Simulated assay, not measured.
Amino acid sequence: MSVNGIGTAGYPVMGYEMRKTGKNVTGGSFAEQAAEAARATATLHGADEGSGDITIFSGAEVVSGSSYSVYKTPDYDPENPIYKVKIWDKSGNVTERMVDVSKVDPKNCDTVEMYAYTANLKESGKGSFEDTVLKAVVAKSVKDAESRSGTWSFLEKFDWTKIVNDLMESSYHYGDLKGYMEWKKFLGFLEK
């Protein structure tokens, strides 16, 4: 039996499959994976004391145990916005990147770049947290669920406009006109 959420183009946006054997695509039982997810933890990190960095936003993915933060550095220039983005894996190993948002292409960028890009939209006053950063986090979460592998890499590049367009179309298809308009607004930010 298949249980799916909203979706378009022949694939579910969110979903899972229960089979008679009780196995999912990765080979474990659904009950075992649900119990493991309930025990999962992630540490939410902020700015290092004394660094002068200002945290724009932080989040954690409990399933993968990773967390991320986007910062303005002390030499931040609104005319040339470059953000520091840190990603921690479940073992606490950190990857740090500086992202020049003027070079981010929403049709071909990774999550690190998208989070910096949407942080800049929020910081520049072009949209609220809910209209920018939160929409990017939700889009990644939907893509994670769709992939059936739990999460995709923060460094894997995607066409975010396609992901958002699919979410927008799903909202319309299921009669959620308010959701449709919210995703359409976010798509407008990405199609500059």
Rank of each mutant, 00 (worst) to 15 (best):
V62I: 15
Y115S: 08
D75R: 07
D166T: 10
M98F: 12
E169K: 12
P12D: 01
I54D: 08
P106A: 04
K143A: 10
D105T: 09
S58M: 10
Y180A: 07
W152Q: 12
T8N: 05
Y115I: 06
V138N: 08
E146W: 14
A116F: 08
P12K: 00
D48V: 15
W183V: 03
K122H: 07
N4G: 08
N80K: 15
F154K: 07
E49W: 14
F158A: 08
C109N: 00
N4Q: 01
V13Q: 00
N108M: 04
R97G: 01
T26P: 00
T21V: 13
G59Y: 14
T26Q: 14
V99G: 04
K23H: 11
A37F: 15
A47G: 11
K157D: 09
F30P: 05
R148G: 04
S69N: 08
K143T: 10
T73V: 12
I163A: 02
I6M: 10
K72I: 09
V164W: 01
E169W: 04
S128A: 09
T95V: 08
R148H: 12
A9V: 05
K185S: 00
V99L: 11
I82P: 05
K184Q: 03
I82S: 10
L44R: 14
L187P: 00
T111F: 15
K162L: 11
S51A: 11
D144T: 01
Y174H: 04
K140L: 11
K90I: 09
N24Q: 13
M168E: 01
K86V: 13
S102F: 05
G125L: 00
R39N: 08
E17P: 00
T8M: 03
P74W: 04
L44K: 12
R39S: 06
V85Q: 01
F154T: 14
S102Y: 07
T21G: 08
S141G: 13
Y117G: 06
I54N: 02
D53I: 03
W152M: 02
T26Y: 14
T73M: 12
S149R: 11
Y180S: 01
G10D: 09
V133T: 02
G127A: 12
K185C: 00
K178N: 09
